[in-house]
Every structure is written in C-alpha cells, then in structure tokens.
Nucleic acid binder design. Structure first.
Lengths: 354, 354
DNA sequence: TTGTATGCGTTATCAT
DNA sequence: ATGATAACGCATACAA
C-alpha cells in the first residue's frame, strides 16, 4: 500500500509537494503536479484517512446514534442525514440499537477521535452522561430529545400539537369515546403523542383518564392486538388514535377481520404518514412528518455548529407535524384520498426530496 | 482534550504503562493500573481512535455502501449489518445513494484508511473498478452482486427462483395471462425477478414476450399507476406479479379504487414480505426474504474474510426466497392469512431476530 | 516553487 | 513490571 513517501520518491519530489498536490494548496508548478498525480495513480496512492485526521484534527465524519430502527421512519431519517452529509462532503459513522446507557457510553467512546460531530436521536436519561461527555469535544445535535441539553442544538417534530390536532379532528367529527394505542414505553415521540392525545380530550371536556389506552410498540402486531382488545371493550370506542402508522395498519387489519368497517363503524387516525398511508384501505388519515427532512435539518444545524465552534448559541428547531385528512375518519371534507392524490400520475407527494 | 501523555504525567508513569492499562496488555501492577485509571477518568481521557488506527492498522470499522435506500427493505439490511457488527465490536461507516461510478469511487476513496473491510450492495458495472481497487487493500463482501468479483465473498437472495415460484403459484391456480410490474431499471434484484417471471411463463408453455410488462421503481406510486394501466388492457390480465411489496400495495389500491376485488377479479403476488404484508387487505401472498439476515450474513462472511486474510477463498452464499401464501391469489390451500398468524398473540413471525 | 523538520496520539519493540 | 523511543502516514511552519 503506497504512502506519500513512495509517491514522493518515485516522482522525485518531497513529501510536502505531494501533500500540496493532493490538497491543491499553495500554487504548485503544474508540471510537477501532473507528474505527481501520474505517479500517484500508477501507485494507486490515496491519502490515509486516519493519518489525515491525526494531523488536521478533522475527520470529515459525523457520528450518528439511533435507537433500534424499525420500519420506514428511521430509514428515512438516515437517508436525510446521509444525503445532506454527503452534500457537505461528510461521512457517517452509524451506531444504533442501544438498549442501555452503558452501551451508549461504549459506542460514544468508540467514536471519539473519529468524528467531528455527533447526531443523536431520542436520548434518554441514561444517555445524557454520554452526551455531556461528547459535547465537550465536538458539537452535538439532538433529535427529538426528551431533555434539552445546554449547548446542544436540537431538532424535533411537533409531536404534541400534531397528536392534539389528530384527536381534535376526531372530536370535531363527533367522537367522544376515543382510544389510544401508545408507542413503546420510554420513547419520547410516543410520550409526546400520548400527551397531545390527553390534552385534546381534556380541552374537549372529555376525561383523559376514562379513555381506553392500550400499550403498543410501534409495530403492526401491536396494532392488531390492540384492535382485538378495543373490539372487546364495552362500550366500544368509536375512534382510535394509533401513535404511528404501522400500528394503524395492524389495527385496520384487526377491524377488518372482525367485520367492522372503517370509518363507518370506527374511525382511525395514525401518525407519521409513511409512504404507504395513502394506499391503505381506507386511505389513512394521519399526521404527516418529514422524517427525511429531520435528518437533513440535523446535518445543517451541525454544519452551523461546527462553523461557530463553542461560541455559537444552541438552536432549537421544531418541524411541523400536520394533519393529513384522507378517509379513515370519514372526514367531513370528504376528500377522495389516494384517488385524488395519485390520479395526477405522480402519486402521493414524494417526500424528503429537496 | 487529554492525551495519553497527560495521563502518564499526572499519574507519574510512562505513556507505555498507560497504553498497557487501556489494552489490558501484559500484567500491569494492579496498584499502578488503578491509579492510572483514576487519573484517566478525572481527565476524561479516552484513546484517540485515529491515532490507534494509525499504529495498529486496524480501524474496527466496516464500510457499507448501499444504493438509494427506499422503504423498509434497506432499513432492515442496515439493521442486520449494524447489529452483527456491534456484536463483533465493529462500527459502521455508511455511504449510500450513489448515482454513478464516479461518486462510488469518491466514496470509496474517502473510506480508505478508515475501514477494515467493505460491504457493498448491488454493485453494477460502474462500481466494479472501485471494488477492485478497494479489494487490494481490505476484504470486500458483495450483496446481491450483478457480477461476481474474483476474490470477493458475496451473499445474495434466490431472487430468480423466488420469482419463479411466485409465478408458478399463479400458473398453478389457472392463470395464463399474468402481468409483471418490474423494479427500477438497472437494479439487479429487479432484473433477476423479471428473469424468474419469464422463465416460469416459458416453463408453463406461455409466451413471455406476449405478457404485459410494466416498468416500475419499487415504490407505491408505480404500483398504483401500473394498476391503472393493467385495468385498461384488453384482454385484461387475471394476475399480476409485482417485483416488490411496496408496488403491490399501490397496485391493490388501484384495483380497489376501480372496484375490482382481489383475488376474485385479479390475483396479486408481491416480493420481500415486508412486515406489513400480512396486514394488508387482502393479506398479501408474497416471497419472503430475510433482509436483516442478509446484513448479518454479510458481516459474518466479512469476519471470516478478515480472519483468513488474502489466503481465504471467496464464499458465495445464497439466501432462500420462499413463497409465502396468504390470500391475495385466492390460494388453493385457503390459508386464513394474518388471522392465523396473528391470532397467537405474537402476530406474524418477527423476522430478523436471531 | 520546493524541501526540511516537527508534531499529531497511539502502539510496540527493546531495554532495564 | 516499567520506561525510553521508534514507527504509523500525513500536514504544515519555516527555511531555502
């Protein structure tokens, strides 16, 4: 594996010159440069990244720590991060599925010296120590943080108001017995959405504590099981808010299996607006959230933070979560759902493209 | 930011000793060790990754190059890679969405010196040069390669036989006018699945060239549009093979919108068996493929290759793609689909867990 | 425009 | 059991 020295020797120049050529630094004699490049390509030389980071103290790499990634949502977040990073000439060091604070700490340590910044999703109490530690060395951007950390930028969805809008929609349609299928315990998004649910009920003069709340885990199977439980409940709720779309899909299946019609017998609203939502039966009314955009925003914030260094303030950004009415609630504004959206030929809005 | 030297100085030992402590190398005097550890934690010292890689020539990092990642499938692949990597104490340097050979080359170069191995998905002609280049320095594992590269291990799904089985299923049900919705042009999986489609038709005495083939792109919208086209065709095909489940979802929506019943009026079979497939209406007959397992296998192969060095042969592994009959084709073996699977309480098989 | 020399933070070799 | 010191591959201040 050729090093800068090999190239220098063969090309008959010093290593400094080779280095200059590869960093198009100060003006190098064009002839010298082309000769160096020629030799380099023959030797298949390319600067060693580790050595470069050591001297420059920059790695051109962003650390990304995510929770266990299920379904399309996280995939979109990663896509947004990846896309935007590459646009800024950065790479991504990925680490996910940490079940406890200890693992997070280990992962964080392993990243030290290999990253110029860290993007961390949904940090909980157990991860705060790691965040603080890392923060003293490189900028940190938090995604949907449970707790804001001083000196850290953050991007989050308006989970609370999005959920509230969804439930208000249900209330506005005349429902007063609304069930909730929650996300996994300890998940920030899930908790915020549950909070929005309760607030909307309270605002409507309904008692949140009287509502049927079924614990879920963001997966289809949980939605299905919740559906079975809801159907068994007397009196039976007339509407259900599923904390994400995957669970809504499971729920719809359970209702269908029991012969219930949606929205006639029971209304359903989801959250996320995954690509499939518009194509379900019936097209799912849900809360749209731009997962890819979240990732992109995080990277942009990171670029700003790296630019500013320690002097920069910490930006807290909120991304909208907007109610998208289709047919699963029997909307007053009887939109035709996917028919309308897809008929144009392009199908539902392609999300996440800038 | 404290270095090994700071720790050595404060603890009153040499840097060599500190290094030994952190690598639990040769036996160090327990007292000395604990003193070093104490100082290190006070100084918040942790070894610099870049410096370590430079001397040890190991980065404990695996490079991962993927195509544009859409939908749940790629998310699962990443999950498998991430999970298995961490089990082996490796990190992941991720790079995706390369539209041409030039970008792949740049990404590959940026990884040089930062990775111990490269896992590359669906390399095409344009990427072969990069693969060859990288291969001379670190082991490379190919995922669903279009072309096998000498000296590279590879893991692939039995796309061809899986697709053939799907279409044979349709033929066995009496269909003789079967349409195909393809994946994106240039996608290896898509092409293999198309090949399986054609072969199954030919084997059944049907003319592949006479079949309706509609170009798609693996997304829901393409499936929807294809559905519209299929319904307009005279004579109308009685069955459709969608090259992946997302498109099948779009197709189902289009059929529903037109008032066609599945499978009564038209049969549908997909590919991938995403988590949602069992919860669709009707539950989707599809070809199951373990995306997460693909990622895991790739990492295991990589570990073997790194162990063996240049001496190891190259393993070619094939992962099964098995037809999973639910209700969208009106199966002869009238399985009850999700009802059956989900009734147990655990829902459809949780995939990707080892 | 080009070369020399130093340092980046480690690990590892060889003494002691 | 511990210390001194030479790599590792590169960037850069300084000298020429």
């Amino acid at each position: 594996m050729a090093t800068i020295r090999d190239v220098a020797r063969v090309a008959g120049v010093s290593i400094a010159t080779v280095s200059r050529v590869f960093n198009n630094h100060t003006l190098v004699n064009p002839e010298t440069a082309s000769r160096v490049l020629e030799v380099a390509s023959q030797l298949e030389y390319w600067p060693n990244g580790a050595a470069q980071s050591l001297t420059t103290r920059r790695t051109h790499t962003l650390g990304v720590m995510l929770p266990e990634l299920f379904g399309e949502f996280y995939s979109e977040v990663i896509r947004g991060i990846d896309r935007e990073s590459r646009a800024h000439d950065y790479q991504i060091l990925l680490s996910s599925s940490h079940s406890n604070g200890e693992e997070v700490l280990i992962a964080g340590r392993a990243m030290l010296g290999r990253i110029d910044g860290l993007i961390m999703m949904a940090p909980d109490e157990a991860s705060i120590e790691t965040v603080e530690r890392v923060r003293r060395r490189v900028p940190v951007v938090l995604l949907n943080p449970r707790i804001e950390v001083e000196g850290c930028c953050s991007v989050a969805f308006e989970n609370f108001s999005g959920a509230r809008a969804a439930v208000e929609h249900l209330v506005g349609l005349g429902h007063n017995d609304i069930a909730l299928i929650t996300g996994p315990q300890g998940n920030v998004d899930a908790e915020e959405r549950a909070r929005g649910f309760r607030r909307a009920l309270a605002d409507a003069g309904l008692d949140p504590d009287a509502a049927l709340v079924i614990p879920g885990d963001f997966r289809e199977s949980a939605g299905y099981e919740a559906g079975v439980a809801i159907l068994a409940r007397r009196p039976r709720p007339t509407a259900v808010f599923a904390a994400n779309d995957c669970m809504a899909v499971g729920l719809l299946a359970a209702l269908r299996a029991a012969g219930r019609r949606v929205p006639r017998d029971i209304a359903v609203v989801g959250f996320d607006d995954i690509a499939m939502a518009a194509y379900l039966n019936p097209p799912l009314t849900t809360v749209r959230v731009d997962a890819c955009g979240l990732g992109q925003q995080a990277v942009e914030l990171m670029m700003g933070a790296m630019e500013a260094g320690a002097t920069g303030g910490s930006v807290r950004q909120l991304l909208p979560a907007v109610l998208t009415v289709r047919q699963s609630c029997g909307a007053a504004s009887a939109g035709t759902g996917y028919l309308e959206e897809a008929a144009g030929g392009a199908g539902p809005v392609r999300r996440g493209r800038k």
